[in-house]
Amino acid sequence: MSSRGLLANEVILLYRRRRTWAMLLALGAVPVLIAVAVRLTSGPPTGRGPAFLDRVAGNGLFVAITGLLVCIPLFLPLTVAVVAGDTIAGEAGSGTLRYLLTAPVSRPRLLLVKFTVAVLFCLSATVMVAVCGLGIGSLLFPVGPVTLLSGTTISAPAALLRVGLIALYVAVSLIGLTAVGLFISTLTDVPVGAMAAIAVLAVAAQILGQLPQLDWLHPWLFTHHWLGFADLLRDPIRWTEFGQNALLQGGYLLVFGALAYGRFASKDVLS
């Protein structure tokens, strides 16, 4: 790690933390639990439970998709809250921020690097769920061609690509939350406080998204497209929602990135 730049070092720092791996392993356990539960109770599909659950027994590839779906509302946002909340507040709380800044790292560069690392974590989290789901799915269930929502059937390798796309979609969905988290992290020197605030925000946004009285607000919530990856399971793929989601997340990134910069650039580092 001696001849690398700051970004590489921060990535290494993230993955040398036990906490990171604890979270990734917990996420990976979700599809495993789903697969084992389905396997042990292999009766006829009941149609209850999360979407795609009833198709798991027929095709192991659906374990990955179901796993991602189950993780989206709570587990993924929780882990993102921990990583995003820690970005600046964690360094401030442990006092290492003052030594980074006097090294020196310019404040914009530090924000950028920290944000990049957090987004990388989002991607590793969704990939983890997908990979564990594919692994356990192919172990416990048959794997074969997949019948898409549009009725057409594609080969298993082609379906694998779709699973990858869904993992990417979910990771992109988390960018807005990560940007909000980065901003919150610049507000405090207490990382746990930032983490809690971000987690609460993720849950609150989803609750608001359920209230029909707030229809006008829904398209602006960063959670709005979180469960909208079904279009990736059609033939041909419909990219509209992917694009809308990316645009919305990009908007959050711009706004909260600017807010984080505005706050952090002038912040007194007193810890």
């Binding site: 040398r16 290492t96 560069r109």
Partner: peptide, 20 residues
């Protein structure tokens, strides 16, 4: 102030690489 789970050497390496 250092990251406690990193070695002294890794901490210094990190700070040195922070300075571009």
């Amino acid at each position: 102030a250092f990251h406690l789970f990193l070695s002294g050497r890794a901490n210094l390496t990190r700070l040195d690489s922070a300075d571009s």
